[in-house]
Computed example of a mutant assay.
Amino acid sequence: MARYNGPKAKIARRFNDPIFGHSKALQKKAYPPGQHGRGRRRKQSEYAIQLMEKQKAKYTYGVLERQFANLFDKASRRSGITGEILLQLLEARLDNLVYRLGIAPTRRAARQLVSHKHITVNGEIVNIPSFHVQPGDVVAVREKSKSLELISDSVAANTVQRYPWLEFNKAELAGKMINVPTREDIPENIKEQLIVELYSK
């Protein structure tokens, strides 16, 4: 399936947000990319602002257009705040959980670990990055893959448990999703209400 493999700094500058992690380019050039990036003064329309927010969410979680639309449809059919439920569904993706637990340094690396069958859910190998993890599920590194340098380096660098809805056993390289995160627990700088307004047109 197609994935965005282009320059990450360019996308971060477009949204003026380090959505792929720390970016030196964003600090040096705090304006949009392209020939006219520095001189843009045109006021954006309401639609453009909403579309930018949706695109930012898609790039952040590495989700394609159809997948994102399906997730929004799923969120809109559930009772509750649609925007918050959408973010909860994105956070419950297996590749995101692997990243949040610190098993992989980035979501891209997490997606690759899942695709290459290095990750198990409740003891069973799962190689679908979009797999929906439920509260109580245990996400772990496959026994044969525990010596991978990428995993050991990432776990060693991730010294602080940052998310109250997850718990991680560094010795076992296994983590559990305790509960569905609240909006306050999700650190991403995404204005989900704008996405809801865009899809409601």
Rank of each mutant, 00 (worst) to 15 (best):
K8D: 13
K10Y: 06
K10L: 00
N16H: 12
P18K: 02
F20K: 08
G21L: 08
H22V: 12
S23N: 05
K24I: 01
Q27P: 01
K28W: 01
G34W: 01
R38Q: 14
R38V: 11
R40P: 13
R40K: 06
K43A: 09
Q44G: 07
Y47N: 00
Y47C: 08
I49P: 03
Q50G: 05
K54S: 03
A57F: 10
Y59M: 10
T60E: 14
V63Y: 06
L64W: 06
N70C: 01
D73N: 05
K74W: 06
G80F: 10
I81T: 13
E84V: 12
E84K: 10
L86S: 14
Q88M: 13
L89G: 00
L89Q: 05
L90R: 04
L94E: 06
L94M: 01
L97M: 04
Y99C: 00
Y99G: 10
R100I: 04
L113K: 07
V121H: 03
V121G: 08
P129A: 00
F131N: 06
H132P: 15
A140T: 01
V141N: 10
K144R: 15
K146P: 13
S147P: 03
L150H: 07
D153H: 15
V155C: 12
P164N: 06
W165A: 14
W165E: 08
M177N: 04
M177D: 04
N189S: 15
Q193W: 12
I195N: 15
